[in-house]
Write a protein that binds this DNA or RNA. Structure first.
Length: 281
DNA sequence: GCCCAGGTGAAGC
DNA sequence: GCTTCACATGGG
C-alpha cells in the first residue's frame, strides 16, 4: 500500500469524529466502532463486532486510490508541489453522505475543534449506541436523518449549534422524507448534484463542494473556505485581488480532474503554517 | 471584553 | 454583480 497518513487524513477537517487514543485513531464508520493504527507499510484495523467483509472500511478509507497517480495529474506548479511534499500520505475519505452533509452544515464560521464538539454532542444525544470492546467507553453512531427530523429546533440548538439548527433540521426533514436522495446524487453529473445540495437552506457552494468531494466521490469538487482562499490569493494572485467569479473559474480550470485532492493539500499546508515560509521568499 | 472560526442569505450600492 | 452585515457559540 502507498503511504497513508492517518493523522492528517482523519484529523484534517474532512471528518469530525476520529479521536487519537493510545497511539491509534478511534471512530465509528457505518455504525461500526473501529480503531486504526499505522503499521507501515499498511494499516491495521480493529473492530468490536466480528466482520466478515472489510469492503465498508476499504471504501471509507479509499485504500485503493492511487495517490501517486492522482498527484501526477496536478499542474506542474511549485507551490502545489511544496504543499504535497509537506503532507505526504494525506488522503481523501469517502464518508457517509448524510453524516458529511450534516457535519458541514454545522461547520460554518466554526473552528474544527468546535465542530467536533457539536457533532459529538449530537451523537451522544441522538445517535444509537454501537458495540465497543469490553470495558471501552461507550460510542454512538451518527444520528440518522430520520432521527433528527423528529427533533425540535430548540433541542438541536441545545447541542450548541446556534443559528445552524434550522438548517440542519430542514436538511434532515428533506432527506428523511425522501425528497433529497443523497445516494442518487453520487450517480448524477457534478453540476446537477451541486445544484441539488445548494437548494438546501444554509448550504452554499462551499458546503456543497465539501459533500461532493468528501462523500459523493466527485474528485473535481474544490471547496473554497477562508484558508484555501488565502492560499489561492497568496500563491496565484499575489498582486491584485481577483473577483470571486474569476477565482472560481481558476479553481475549475487549473487543478485538473483531482482538483479536490489539491485543495486538501493546500488547506492542510496553510493550516500547519507551511505557506509562511514560501511567501517570505 | 474582543476577536475569530472549513459560510450563508439578505440587503445595500 | 460585488460588498457588507447579521447570525449563535465557545475558545484563545
Amino acid at each position: 500500500m502507498r503511504p497513508y497518513d492517518l493523522e492528517s487524513t482523519l484529523l484534517g477537517g474532512q471528518a469530525f469524529r476520529w479521536q487519537h487514543r493510545d497511539g491509534g485513531w478511534e471512530g465509528v464508520v457505518g455504525g461500526r466502532w473501529v480503531r486504526l493504527t499505522s503499521t507501515p507499510p499498511g494499516l491495521r484495523a480493529e473492530v468490536a463486532a466480528p466482520s466478515a467483509d472489510w469492503g465498508w472500511l476499504a471504501r471509507y478509507l479509499r485504500v485503493d486510490a492511487d495517490l501517486d497517480q492522482i498527484i501526477g495529474t496536478f499542474p506542474d506548479d511549485p507551490c502545489l508541489h511544496e504543499a504535497v511534499a509537506a503532507c505526504r500520505g494525506l488522503r481523501l475519505l469517502r464518508q457517509e453522505p448524510w453524516e458529511c452533509l450534516a457535519s458541514f452544515i454545522l461547520s460554518s464560521t466554526k473552528r474544527i475543534t468546535h465542530i467536533r464538539q457539536i457533532v459529538e454532542r449530537l451523537c451522544e444525544r441522538y445517535g444509537g449506541p454501537v458495540v465497543v470492546p469490553p470495558g471501552h467507553a461507550p460510542a454512538w453512531e451518527f444520528p440518522p436523518a430520520e432521527r433528527l427530523a423528529g427533533c425540535a429546533e430548540t433541542a438541536l440548538r441545545a447541542c450548541g449549534m446556534g443559528f445552524r439548527a434550522p438548517y440542519l433540521l430542514a436538511a434532515a426533514r428533506r432527506v428523511a422524507a425522501g425528497e433529497l436522495d443523497l445516494a442518487l446524487l453520487g450517480r448524477r453529473p457534478l453540476a446537477e448534484a451541486r445544484t441539488a445540495l445548494i437548494a438546501l437552506p444554509g448550504v452554499g457552494r462551499k458546503i456543497a463542494d465539501c459533500v461532493l468531494l468528501f462523500a459523493l466521490g466527485f474528485d473535481a469538487a474544490f471547496p473554497v473556505d477562508v484558508w484555501v482562499l488565502k492560499a489561492l490569493r497568496e500563491l496565484y494572485f499575489p498582486r491584485r485581488r481577483p473577483t470571486p467569479r474569476r477565482l472560481l473559474a481558476f479553481t475549475e480550470s487549473h487543478f485538473g480532474p483531482h482538483a479536490g485532492y489539491a485543495q486538501q493539500y493546500l488547506f492542510h499546508y496553510m493550516r500547519v503554517g507551511g505557506l509562511v515560509a514560501v511567501s517570505a521568499d
